[in-house]
């Protein structure tokens, strides 16, 4: 974490010092571009306006008919009820999502390194076969998955859920890292190998240090996906007390009656960790590759 933070500051400093050359030119074009961005704001902000205002309304007022009105009377019942129902499951999500994200990103990084730097016979086939995993329909593999987890004794446990998220995350993280490592010259890897370093040591000493941006991209992708999943959470863990927070979020809306103020409040609360992750890591997510790429 601290390594990330230092890099962030370094990147920030570099940015402030030298704005891109094209920015220095064309003041006129820049105005147009800024105007275009401003035009996009309503499209992106309108749904947030609706969600946030609805979260502070009374149940009857949090309705499509009054969606544009400001909350009047202001009601905190939705926030309160959503929080009381979501908070017991927050911790479960955190202890599930952090290891799942880290492990799947690490594996994806190592695989991406192997696949981009060592093209061996069958390497493309193996990669292709793994990529199919991205597209498998989850609904129809749930039962064999439960049976497998029972067989290895992980059914009903958070480690079991972590395993599922890690395995189904491997294809995407591998893809992200494989395409990311393409920008790292193969010569660098080979120089290390001439020095006598093995595959694993080369990964540790040459590849891993320049991978932080890749980890941020893959990590945020995985974090968001795993945090927002509730199907696997429900199926792998039948016990409601250790289910992830999204299972509780899903249950905020009833089968017959739905109070939208509670649902909107819950959705906002459940999105907080992911949103904060973006804000905290957004800089890396977006500018990562320059700081890490090898020139």
């Amino acid at each position: 974490m601290s390594a990330l933070a230092t890099t962030s500051r370094r990147v920030a400093r570099r940015r402030r010092k030298a704005p891109p050359a094209h920015v220095r030119h064309g003041r006129h074009a820049r105005r147009w571009q800024f105007a275009l961005l401003i035009l996009m704001v309503p499209f992106f902000a309108a749904p947030f306006y609706v969600m946030i205002t609805a979260a502070f309304k009374t149940p009857a007022h949090a309705d499509v008919l009054t969606m544009w009105q400001l909350p009047h009377p202001l009601s905190f019942d939705g926030i309160r009820e959503a929080w009381s129902k979501l908070s017991p499951n927050f911790v479960n999500s955190v202890i599930m999502v952090v290891p799942a994200t880290v492990i799947s990103s690490l594996i994806g990084s190592f695989n991406g390194y192997l696949l981009s730097k060592f093209t061996f016979r069958l390497s493309n086939l193996m990669f292709t076969l793994m990529l199919v995993g991205m597209f498998i329909p989850y609904q129809s593999i749930l039962i064999p998955m439960v049976k497998f987890l029972q067989f290895v004794g992980l059914y009903g446990t958070i480690p079991g859920l972590i395993l599922v998220h890690v395995v189904y995350g491997i294809p995407i993280t591998t893809l992200i890292f494989r395409n990311y490592y393409v920008s790292i010259p193969r010569a660098l890897v080979e120089a290390a190998s001439i020095d006598g370093a093995g595959i694993v040591r080369t990964y540790r000493s040459v590849i891993l240090p320049v991978s932080i941006p890749g980890f941020v991209v893959a990590g945020i992708f995985q974090f968001t996906n795993i945090w927002n999943d509730f199907l696997f959470g429900l199926v792998v863990i039948p016990n409601p007390t250790i289910q992830p927070v999204t299972a509780a979020l899903n249950n905020l809306s009833g089968t017959q009656t739905v109070n939208w103020n509670v649902v909107m409040a819950g959705a906002l609360i459940a999105a907080l960790p992911t949103g904060l992750a973006y804000l905290g890591l957004g800089r890396f997510f977006v500018q990562g590759l320059t700081s890490g790429s090898v020139k």
């Binding site: 992106f44 749904p47 959705a267």
Partner: peptide, 17 residues
């Protein structure tokens, strides 16, 4: 941040909105 934030939200709620 503004353009990225929608990605953080659960589909169930954004679908309703």
């Amino acid at each position: 941040g503004l353009f990225l934030l929608p990605y953080a939200l659960s589909f169930i709620a954004t679908g309703v909105v």
